[in-house]
Amino acid sequence: MAKKSETPPIYVTRRGPNLTGEMQADRDRIAEIPEGERIRVEIRTGRVPKRLAFYWAFLRNVVEATHCAPNEKILHQLVKLRTGHTDDVIMGGYVIKVPASISFENMDEPTFVRFLDSAIEFIALEFGITPESVERAA
């Protein structure tokens, strides 16, 4: 999420060589920029909220089926540690690995897809549960 002192991002889609505001609110904000004014654009592909929702639902299903963790948030921390999605912190002369963020702000969609694939692989190997097995059970 954007910080309060920042303006929210404008989302655009590519149409040939042009970038066009995705929604009317985006197009309205673009229209407020004076013609010919130089603007800075940071290219980042958008995250897919449905994919993130799938991940959390899958974790909930794994916890319900295996009781491997008190809740999906704790399982999420374990998944990040076991898939190597960590940050290194130096404490007392030792390097300690702590779970890194998967927030929209900190991870682009291609990186999240790789993380999700690793998470599914870890869960399948460790707990014997796959998204397909959850669908069959439902």
Rank of each mutant, 00 (worst) to 15 (best):
A2D: 06
P17D: 15
H67G: 12
A31N: 12
A53I: 12
A53Q: 14
G93E: 05
G16N: 09
G84I: 04
Y55L: 05
E105H: 04
G93Y: 10
I90Y: 01
K80D: 01
Y55E: 00
R38L: 10
G21Q: 03
N106G: 13
S133H: 01
T86K: 01
K73S: 09
T130W: 05
R29N: 12
I33R: 06
I33D: 09
V79Q: 03
V79W: 01
Y94T: 11
H85V: 10
L52W: 02
K4S: 10
P131C: 01
R27N: 06
I102T: 15
Y94V: 13
N61L: 02
E126Y: 09
R15D: 14
T13S: 12
L116H: 09
G21S: 07
F127T: 00
A53S: 13
R40F: 12
V62P: 03
I102A: 04
E35N: 10
S133A: 07
E105L: 11
Y55S: 03
I90K: 08
E109G: 05
D28Y: 00
P9E: 05
A31M: 08
E121D: 14
A57Q: 15
P110V: 04
V12C: 11
F104P: 00
I39E: 08
R114L: 15
K3N: 12
K80N: 08
N106W: 01
V48W: 09
K3R: 15
K97T: 05
K50R: 11
R27C: 04
A57Y: 12
I102V: 13
E37R: 11
S133G: 11
G92F: 07
K97Y: 05
